[in-house]
């Protein structure tokens, strides 16, 4: 039985190694924030982090995930208060909301390595994530807002440390 590290917890799962990680996370572990959209890596609804990188969990097998750090929307922040989640609420991004876990996880991977992206960088990074309600402009605004908040927080942190 493979052992997975999900959101900081060690979990033993009953699944063949070639099972898509998506179904193990959703149906076996019942962490349903990660969504099934296409099963082919074309829509981004199932995006999670593997060692901090955004990947499509429908295209990632259980055996590929063994020994790596898996993060889902449920583990992105302790209280749903990641700067992106807060910005998603401020900008009132979701309509049906089904793609938004994947959108947030995809965006979080970008901001973790670049907290000052240009609009073009955001578009290039997010273009694989479909939103059928077409909330794209609010997604962009929310990413920019979160990036700005993260920069402010990190500047403040730097200042505090330096004094």
């Amino acid at each position: 039985m493979p052992n997975l590290t999900i959101n900081g917890r060690n979990m033993s799962v009953e699944a063949a190694g070639d099972t898509p990680l998506l179904w193990v996370i959703r149906e076996q572990l019942q962490m349903t924030g990660t969504k099934f959209g296409c099963g082919a890596g074309l829509c981004g609804a199932c995006t999670i982090h593997l060692n901090g990188e955004a990947v499509r969990s429908c295209q990632t097998s259980v055996s590929e995930a063994v020994g790596k750090k898996i993060t889902t929307i449920e583990g992105l922040s302790a209280k749903g208060d990641h700067p992106l989640q807060k910005a998603w609420i401020t900008e009132q991004v979701p309509q049906c909301g089904y793609c938004q876990s994947g959108q947030i996880m995809q965006a979080a991977a970008l901001l973790s390595r670049n907290s000052n992206p240009t609009r073009d960088e955001v578009v290039a990074h997010m273009d694989g994530n479909l939103c059928r309600c077409m909330t794209y402009s609010r997604i962009q605004k929310a990413i920019m807002r979160a990036a700005s908040e993260m920069r402010t927080a990190s500047n403040a942190g730097t200042e505090r440390r330096s004094t």
């Binding site: 962490m31 349903t32 924030g33 990660t34 969504k35 889902t72 929307i73 449920e74 749903g80 989640q85 998603w88 609420i89 009132q92 991004v93 979701p94 909301g97 089904y98 938004q100 876990s101 947030i104």
Partner: peptide, 12 residues
């Protein structure tokens, strides 16, 4: 409904 659609708790 929006907060539940940013943290994975909304049930479809």
């Amino acid at each position: 409904d929006i907060p539940s659609k940013t943290n994975g708790t909304a049930k479809y």
